[in-house]
């Protein structure tokens, strides 16, 4: 990877971090409502994996912690922020909110609130790809907690049985809300749980984007060439609470501090500085530029664009012409 791409990746992770922090502020100012699940600490997962996918043509689906997956899939950050502000110009026209981002134009098939719900959807996208022919694959990002849902086991079996081109990415951040993984799960190494279904799998560090990309490349190529499922577990950590209403009090200070030392942006930045790809000064300038862009372009847009019209409240329940037949 050349220096230009390395700098771009660093900037993307920084953008993701600052974007989420700005969302938290907007939530405190009550410009964003509902449930808000943020991604700081986990940036290398979505950005590293999707760097190796064909975003725009491969299908991507995830849960409620979906902002960065949407961005890296190609969603316009303005459309994303406008959605969080509940605006008509939002990616879901203000009807969805943080947990329900959609952009089918770039094959970002959504964020979903119910844990485990996207597993079969992802396999369904892969089934359609299989019927249509073509080289696309389906990529499903979910947490460790989701693997205790029946849909996980049922979908793994069918995806393998029917050779569906779907890549399952498990973002293992060691907790499902306040419950530590050892308290909910017998086999804590998630990648081992798909072995009985005959699915190839691996586990790797999710904090170092170079490691994530190396594993993702292998995984994506496998699914694309073999037309079979693959399961990749990324070991990661969320630096904030589960959502804005969770302080994360169930985790020790030491544990959080230890993971903060392994912040994916810090790791990558140090590497690039050591390699002479960026200087400290350039990094700070980049950070400033990112924050300015978010404030002056993204947030301003979200504030200024209009709300949906109340008269349109029943629009989209059905398709137009949904009663056609024959």
């Amino acid at each position: 990877m050349d220096a230009t791409d390395q700098k771009r990746l660093l900037r993307e992770m920084l953008f993701a971090r600052r974007f989420e922090e700005r969302c938290a502020e907007a939530y405190h100012e009550r410009q964003i409502g509902g449930f808000l699940h943020l991604y700081p600490g986990e940036e290398a997962c979505a950005i590293g994996v999707l760097e190796k996918a064909q975003t725009g043509s491969d299908y991507v689906v995830t849960g409620y912690r979906d902002h960065i997956h949407a961005l890296k899939s190609g969603m316009d950050p303005k459309a994303l922020m406008a959605e969080l502000f509940g605006k008509e110009a939002g990616c879901s026209k203000g009807r969805g909110g943080s947990m329900h981002l959609f952009d089918p134009d770039v094959h970002f098939m959504g964020g979903y609130a119910l844990v485990g719900g996207p597993f079969p959807l992802a396999a369904g996208f892969a089934k359609a790809i299989q019927l249509r022919g073509g080289q696309e694959i389906s990529i499903c990002f979910l947490g460790d907690g989701a693997n205790n849902q029946g849909t996980f086991h049922e979908t793994m079996n069918m995806a393998s049985l029917w050779n569906l081109p779907v890549l399952f990415i498990c973002e293992n951040n060691l907790y499902g809300i306040g419950t530590a993984i050892e308290r909910s799960t017998v086999e804590i190494n998630q990648y081992k749980r798909v072995a009985p279904y005959g699915i190839e799998a691996a586990q790797c560090d999710g904090q170092d984007i170079d490691i994530v990309m190396a594993h993702a490349e292998k995984a994506v190529n496998y699914v694309r060439e073999q037309r079979k499922p693959y399961f990749l577990e990324l070991m990661t950590y969320r630096l904030r609470g589960h959502s804005m209403s969770d302080s994360g009090a169930y985790r020790s200070k030491e544990e959080v501090e230890e993971w903060a030392q392994r912040d994916p942006i810090g790791i990558y930045k140090r590497r690039l500085v050591e390699a002479g790809v960026v200087t400290e000064d350039e990094f700070h300038a980049m950070d400033k530029a990112v924050q300015d862009e978010i404030e002056n372009e993204v947030v301003r847009y979200a504030i200024e664009c209009p709300e949906p019209r109340v008269e349109d409240v029943t629009r989209y329940v059905y398709t137009e012409g949904g009663n056609n037949h024959g």
């Binding site: 509940g86 879901s92 009807r95 109340v310 409240v313």
Partner: peptide, 16 residues
């Protein structure tokens, strides 16, 4: 309530 999936936007939600 209106016969719709509940929207996120606060005004639409209130209307529902």
């Amino acid at each position: 309530a209106l016969d719709i999936p509940i929207p996120y936007n606060h005004r639409l939600e209130k209307a529902a």
